[in-house]
Design a protein around this nucleic acid. Structure first.
Lengths: 240, 240
DNA sequence: GGCAAAAGTAATGTAGACAATATGTATTAC
DNA sequence: GTAATACATATTGTCTACATTACTTTTGCC
């Protein structure tokens, strides 16, 4: 095989990830091994290895003798997401400000440029993928192998949720998208300055903006708050 | 093949996990595909799938064309572990108290019985594995797919660190082991009572106990600083 | 006419053989 | 004597073919 044979496998894995993130492959969709193997020009064994890998990363779910399906999103997904996201985002962003290297900061700046470009292009999928990449780089800056697994899992469903609800034709959301992009610039400034507290606070603010957008679609009018108290939040029933 | 052919694969995966957790397979050790395939009586393709799966779970690290090795523990591992563990443990335990089902509580009680038995037996590996299982069940009780990945990753290295430092012949540590087991009983009580705050506080206390044990080995007498300092870079200026 | 059981079909799971890459060693040249 | 290159060996990566499991459809019986 040529030298690109090896890269065909990683191309396949990367493309599957992208198609799942953008909901081109919808949650719960069954994945046919022979079909995918033919598409990417590889045989079934290496494809099966990729599916196992993606299962470990949380992109797909495997069932014995019943094939693979894109990781489903159940009714509990959003609720669990709202519980875990602020904690993990704040923690990893704080660590990123403490540990970021110049090389990583340069990559983050490049990513932000690409993100702005995707917004301008109006391509929702491209914007979602660039946003995911931006926050993945921040996760890599945190350089903590114990927090990265949950961050990756969060970014998968955050991206998919965004692709579900964010409607490019809803022009009234354009200012919010701009605000998100501006916050990305702030991320870069604070991380470059090593401002851990500031970065963590911005992560929370960035989360709140996204959360508000999501809730505006999920809870149309009333339903004020039921989506779950964050771990560490004061207990509703008044105990000490 | 018989009906147990399928289970041979899961037996292989489970055994590899156990051997890694107990350091029977040491961090950084290279894994030979043909050797492992022969040991478990399967061929290389399914074994390679298992290795991919274990890589996704954080047990092993894969390198292109260079095989698999048991996930290494570097100088940064302990430091990153100390940062992430209290946060994830507290959050998942709190959620466990909120969401545990009677069936899960029954499993947790059984696990605690096995844990006590392992302590009595004096088998360090069995005790470590039962402890890992106990905390995995608590993680499953939390029922949050976004926090579970980091919890699994933490438990892997927590177990390995414990196997590294906990010396059964050090009789002076027996009371601490008893204290840990007693805390497990408290976990059961608080989770069964649905006391989220209490469970979270206990998780922190449980962590502090474990942390103190670990630090007593890492910083034997007077070295107060080394955990946060890069072991590769000895402090040039005569430190404080 | 409906339900259940059996056979057929299509998928996943596995095995053995082949190709390509990396590593270690030996030889040769400087 | 040392270093670099080439070759040999061992290990990883891949493919085709086969076994097994699950699902679907059809047929027979109630």
């Amino acid at each position: 095989m040529e030298t690109e044979a090896r890269s065909r496998k990683s191309v396949c894995a990367d493309d599957l990830r992208k198609r799942i993130l953008t909901q081109d492959l919808e949650p719960g969709a069954y994945l046919d091994e022979v079909e995918l193997a033919e598409i990417y020009g590889i045989s079934r064994p290496p494809l099966r290895e990729i599916l196992r890998q993606l299962a470990g990363e949380g992109y797909v779910a495997l069932q014995e003798n019943r094939g693979a399906q894109v990781a489903p999103m159940t009714h509990k997904t959003l609720r669990n997401f709202f519980v875990a996201a602020p904690m993990i985002y704040a923690a990893t962003t704080r660590l990123a400000a403490e540990h970021a290297t110049p090389t990583q900061i340069a990559r983050l700046k490049q990513s932000q440029q690409d993100f702005r470009g995707a917004i301008a292009s109006g391509d929702a999928a491209a914007r979602a993928l660039e946003n995911e990449r931006f926050h993945t780089i921040i996760g890599e800056m945190a350089d903590n192998e114990f927090l990265m697994p949950s961050l990756r899992r969060l970014l998968i469903d955050h991206t998919r949720i965004a692709m579900t609800f964010y409607n490019p034709r809803k022009v009234e959301l354009a200012p919010q998208r701009e605000a998100a992009a501006d916050q990305h610039d702030e991320f870069i400034l604070l991380i470059e300055a090593g401002d851990a507290d500031g970065a963590a606070a911005l992560a929370v603010a960035h989360w709140e903006l996204s959360r508000a957008q999501i809730e505006s679609f999920v809870t149309p009018v009333s339903m004020s708050y039921p989506l779950g108290t964050a771990p560490g939040a004061p207990n509703p029933k008044g105990n000490a």
